[in-house]
């Protein structure tokens, strides 16, 4: 029995350390520190425990205990629901909302991290049993953790589009960035302020896949939110005129953005756009389609 307790303890520690490693509190300040972080660490401990218990339970011929793993699915789903609800509730009070697609993406990532923690614990305890060597088991655990972390890594905008500065100008009362009409602006003062503080950014998709991915409205909103978080915004509640917007050139798929950053640096703005995440839910691959491109596709 002591041996099983040893298996359990080592894998639990591996899982919890894994969760700490996966915790990233960066410019997004999400999960929020300190309460959000504590919550996720606790969830991580539960996930690690669920992963660690499976092998010792099987060895002890306690098959009923393995059904605990079904709890895991429920547990992870609740992490996702919690994140979704939390972010949706504060959404109305964000100056620049995240958009539902981005919220769903974040919730999905948090759920995924718990799976990683559980798999790390499970692998560690399995290796402990197979090799009876703690160091080897811990090493395999670390490798699994790092591999899974990198397999979860999503794309950045710079991988699917060329990002450059676009010219901000007015055609009468129509605000344009390069050849794309963004919106109608009525007041002279607003126009002057837009010309002074607005910076246009144009995304040129590198291929057909990127073209349709960038057309996704959730993807555009996610870029806007991410950029505003980093370079700031010159706008208040009663100034809808200065809402950053994205409009698409339907002929070539270019997406033009207008931003009003607090940090008036084109370089900083371009970097922020380049590093914005490509949403998993927005990604499309029409080039894999049999109908459009004559590829294998689905029969």
């Amino acid at each position: 029995m002591d041996q099983f307790l040893f298996f359990f303890t080592i894998s639990l520690i591996m899982g919890v350390l894994g969760r700490v490693y996966l915790m990233r509190v960066d410019y997004r300040q999400y999960p929020s520190y300190p309460r959000g972080v504590i919550m996720h660490l606790t969830f991580g401990i539960i996930s690690a425990a669920l992963g660690s218990i499976a092998i010792p339970a099987l060895l002890a011929k306690d098959y009923a205990a393995v059904t605990f793993l079904t709890l895991a699915a429920e547990q992870f789903r609740s992490v996702r629901t919690m994140e979704r609800e939390n972010l949706s509730l504060i959404e109305d009070f964000e100056l620049v909302p995240r958009g539902r697609s981005y919220i769903e993406e974040i919730a999905k990532i948090f759920e995924g991290r718990n799976y990683i923690v559980m798999l790390t614990s499970l692998t560690t305890s399995l290796m402990l049993y197979a090799f009876s060597n703690t160091y080897a088991a811990v090493m395999v655990g670390i490798i699994i953790l790092v591999l899974l972390k990198y397999s979860m890594k999503g794309q950045r905008i710079e991988e699917i589009a060329k990002v450059r500065i676009g010219k901000v100008w007015f055609d009468g009362s129509l605000l344009c960035v390069d050849d794309v009409v963004i919106m109608n602006v009525g007041l002279k003062e607003t126009k002057e302020r837009i010309l002074k503080t607005g910076i246009g950014v144009v995304l040129e998709p590198v291929d057909q896949n990127a073209n349709i991915t960038l057309a996704n409205i959730g993807q555009r909103q996610a870029i806007i939110h991410d950029v505003v978080t980093q370079v700031g915004i010159k706008k208040d509640l009663d100034e809808p005129d200065f809402t950053p917007l994205a409009r698409r050139n339907v002929n070539n798929g270019n997406v033009a953005f207008i931003f009003y950053p607090s940090i008036q640096s084109e370089e900083a703005l371009l970097r922020a756009v380049r590093y914005a995440p490509v949403l998993e839910s927005a990604r499309r691959k029409p080039t894999e389609s049999g109908a459009a491109y004559g590829k294998g596709g689905r029969r």
């Binding site: 007041l187 009663d238 809808p240």
Partner: peptide, 13 residues
């Protein structure tokens, strides 16, 4: 401009 400010709307021309 004033109505736009009061109603938190946007003026279009």
């Amino acid at each position: 401009f004033l109505i736009a400010k009061i109603t938190q709307g946007m003026a279009h021309n």
